[in-house]
């Protein structure tokens, strides 16, 4: 009995709890993740929260400025666009699509890109050469041109546009993964795993990959912004989201002509993209630091 009392209660930190604790210590990351959660909630509840239908045109209220400016109406808090649609409602509905595009595109290119990079690093030789030359070919074309080609091949449409952007973004993930994996492969802890009898899959996924995530997280958060903008460019060319579907990128590129006469048409979608991207970036930074045991306190 005395033993039981004397025994120091052993703390068994669960991995998730540890991770959350060190993540939460990073203020910026914490605030950003809250903002992101709010954004996602708003996007999900868009049809309830939005004051108007995103595609309803109020012909009498074309190009109204935001409510707090002279000439603005309280009914349209952020003003209306060139055909009289409520900008706030379009932004809220557009959030659904834009965030979805960002997440899906980054996920596809991250998963496929990392897998290819790991395979290239581990198998080497002909497989390595084949994968990396294909990636080089993809890198040669300007991103948008390549995306247009992909869409032209698989046909227009939102999902195909996302696929196209994902393919455009893939080489950077593949190259990053391969480079970090090659660096890690030469370290002795990999030999140690191997001499313990670890199979190739174990070495790839459990031993090497966790040491390669830092640059990938950064690349992924930056890629999120690119994904939204590229998808918008495709939409602009008529190959992605089709009007009148609200989507941030399309709203941005469609309103460039009014940059001087109706600044609110450009500014608010731009600000939305900016805030989302910054938040993803900060969350990414926090995640990277939380995942690195050296930076955990």
């Amino acid at each position: 009995m005395s033993d039981a009392i004397l025994a120091v209660p052993e703390k068994i930190p669960s991995r998730a709890v540890e991770l959350w604790k060190s993540f939460a210590r990073n203020r910026a990351a914490l605030v950003s993740s809250v903002v992101l959660v709010v954004l996602v909630l708003l996007a999900i509840c868009a049809s309830v929260v939005a004051p108007h239908d995103p595609i309803e045109q109020f012909r009498k209220d074309i190009l109204l400025p935001p409510a707090w400016l002279e000439g603005g109406k309280v009914a349209f808090p952020l003003g209306t666009d060139d055909i009289g649609r409520d900008i706030l409602s379009r932004l809220l509905h557009g959030a659904q699509l834009s965030i979805l595009i960002g997440i899906i595109v980054v996920t596809i290119s991250l998963v496929v890109g990392c897998a290819l990079g790991l395979v290239a690093a581990f198998f080497g030789g002909l497989i390595d050469t084949a994968i990396m030359r294909v990636m080089d070919i993809l890198l040669v074309f300007p991103g948008l041109v390549l995306a247009v080609v992909v869409v032209a091949v698989v046909g227009p449409g939102l999902f195909n546009a996302m696929l196209a952007v994902a393919i455009v973004m893939m080489p950077s993930f593949t190259r990053l993964t391969r480079a970090s994996a090659l660096r890690e492969l030469s370290r002795e802890y990999v030999s140690a795993s191997r001499s313990a009898g670890a199979g190739r899959f174990h070495l790839m996924v459990r031993t090497v990959f966790p040491n390669c995530v830092a640059p990938l997280i950064i690349q992924a958060t930056l890629g999120f912004a690119n994904a939204i903008l590229d998808a918008a460019a495709l939409g602009f060319l008529g190959l992605g989201a089709q009007p009148p579907t609200p989507e941030w990128g399309t709203m941005l590129s469609g309103s460039l002509a009014y940059l001087q006469s109706a600044w609110w048409m450009v500014t608010f979608p731009g600000a939305c993209i900016l805030v989302t991207v910054i938040c993803f970036n900060l969350v990414g930074d926090g995640l990277r630091d939380a995942l690195d045991p050296k930076l955990r306190r």
Partner: peptide, 12 residues
């Protein structure tokens, strides 16, 4: 292994 700084997986 020779180098104890390289032979332990830093993430584990």
């Amino acid at each position: 292994f020779q180098n104890p700084y390289g032979s332990l997986n830093p993430r584990k």
